[in-house]
Design a binder for these strands. Structure first.
Length: 213
DNA sequence: AATGGTCACAACCGCACAATG
DNA sequence: TCATTGTGCGGTTGTGACCAT
């Protein structure tokens, strides 16, 4: 059997958020936090929204210290490097870009970077569902995913939001590993000459992603 | 000026995982 | 140990803005 839905979708408001809804959510979370329960939060503040929707709105739009606007070349580089190394683990990539959200990075990749790098061709996009042969074997196990998924730092996950911008001490191992990956990948990409360069060579990525170990 | 196509962004959906009783 | 519940994640879709014709 499938699990019960997180909320009564039939009676929930969907679609774009109004300024009033934003204000309610923002002021409440800033004052009280999420209380560790996104499902109950909309009821508390009188929002006719799904808890997941509230969480997403907060993470991607309302939370403080969000950096909005164009991505810098350095950020482009980081995104591309990490994508080559670990695939479409946007949440992990987001931890390397303070102020950026995984959703934002994902959108940016899909709309701009992918085209820039691969032209019109698309490319080998690692899928979490399919779990195909991963871009980098050393990164593709559940242990490497765990630090980014589990909001175990900062106390009970209530402040998991801050993990996006400030990093997470318990994930320091992952971070240092990513540092190494980033260094390697940046060098590798530059050597290949397909990053931000003239013409990208799709096959160099799709067929033979850099092996990390 | 009107229309159609494309792009960029916000939001939703469904799945997997972790926590809890 | 198992069932249930909440959270996090990645993929996908909807929609408004912009641009070309």
């Amino acid at each position: 059997m499938g699990r019960a839905p997180c909320c009564d979708k039939a009676n929930m408001k969907k679609g774009p958020w109004s300024p009033e809804e934003d204000e309610k959510l923002k002021s409440y979370v800033e004052q009280h936090g999420t209380g560790g329960n996104w499902i109950a939060l909309p009821q508390k503040i009188g929002l006719n929204r799904c808890g997941k929707s509230c969480r997403l709105r907060w993470l991607n739009y309302l939370r403080p210290n969000l950096k909005r606007g164009n991505f810098s070349a350095e950020e482009d580089n980081i995104i591309c490097s990490l994508f080559v190394s670990i695939g479409s683990r946007w949440s992990i990539i987001a931890t390397r870009l303070p102020g950026r959200t995984d959703n934002e990075i994902k959108n940016y990749w899909n709309t701009k970077l992918k085209k820039r790098l691969f032209g019109s061709g698309g490319g080998a996009v690692a899928s979490r569902k399919e779990k195909p042969s991963p871009p980098a074997a050393s990164m593709d196990n559940e242990e490497t995913r765990a630090p980014a998924v589990a909001p175990s730092c900062g106390g009970g996950g209530e402040d998991s939001v801050s993990n996006y911008s400030s990093g997470c001490s318990s994930a320091s191992g992952l971070m240092s590993e990513l540092d190494e990956l980033l260094q390697f990948s940046s060098v590798g990409l530059e050597e290949m000459g397909w990053l931000f360069g003239e013409d990208g060579d799709e096959s160099s990525f799709a067929v033979a992603p850099p092996a990390v170990n």
